[in-house]
Amino acid sequence: MNVNWLKTPALALMSALALSAPVVAETSGTATQKEGTMTKIEFIFGEDRLSATLDDTAAGRDFAAMLPLELTLTDYHGVEKVADLPRKLDTTGAPASYKPETGDITLYAPWGNLAIFYKPFQNSRGLVRLGAFDGDIAPLVRSAPYTVRLEIAD
């Protein structure tokens, strides 16, 4: 077998990269699976139980660490339900802004409060996505303030 082509530095480098590509792809796939662990939570109020999934982010993990938690949700401008959190969340690595969709669970970092969107809203600076509901959120839309318990799902 003639291996003189390996004596050219550029060809040798390309060859080494091509040979290592499957290993790199396999390694990054494994890392993604480990990082992709998401936390399932439940919002419990009255006879209603709504499930949600928190993102695998610093803020999502820090919020999960607070649970179980009891909060009073109030309406804010006919777009979202808000509640004060007992402490600030870790927002390391969070983008500067976020455009919420219906069912998004977010943190409004400047005020340190939870914001649950039942209608889509504009891109807002300081808004950090924590996760989203897994299904219908209609039971959340009530006019009067109400208490909700948040727990890690079994």
Rank of each mutant, 00 (worst) to 15 (best):
F133V: 04
P100G: 02
D62P: 03
L19A: 11
T92V: 08
A18T: 12
V79G: 09
Y118W: 07
K34P: 03
L85M: 05
D90N: 15
R49A: 12
L130Q: 01
G126W: 07
K81Q: 06
P100F: 03
E101T: 12
M38Q: 15
E35V: 13
L114K: 04
T91Y: 05
A83S: 10
F117E: 04
L6I: 06
F63M: 04
Y146G: 05
A58H: 10
R49H: 11
D90Y: 01
D48N: 14
T30P: 06
D104L: 03
E70V: 15
P120F: 05
V128D: 00
I41W: 00
H77M: 14
A94D: 02
D84S: 13
L13H: 11
I105Y: 00
L11D: 07
L69P: 03
G131D: 01
N4G: 09
M66L: 15
P120G: 06
M14F: 13
P110E: 08
D48T: 14
W5Y: 13
L67G: 07
S143C: 09
G131K: 01
N4R: 12
V82D: 00
E80K: 06
T102Q: 10
G29R: 14
D154A: 15
P110R: 11
T92G: 11
P86T: 04
E42A: 14
T32W: 09
N2M: 06
A25H: 09
G78T: 05
I105K: 02
A94I: 01
I44M: 12
A25I: 12
M14C: 13
R129P: 04
D154L: 10
H77D: 15
P22M: 08
V3S: 11
F43N: 03
L54C: 06
P86D: 08
R129A: 09
P100D: 01
I137M: 07
D90K: 07
T37I: 13
K119P: 05
K88W: 04
E35I: 12
N113C: 03
A109V: 05
T30L: 15
A153P: 07
S124P: 07
L54Q: 03
G135E: 09
G60R: 01
D75Q: 11
T27D: 11
E70C: 06
M38I: 10
N4M: 08
Y98T: 02
K34L: 14
V3N: 12
A109G: 09
A52L: 01
K7C: 09
T72E: 14
V23T: 12
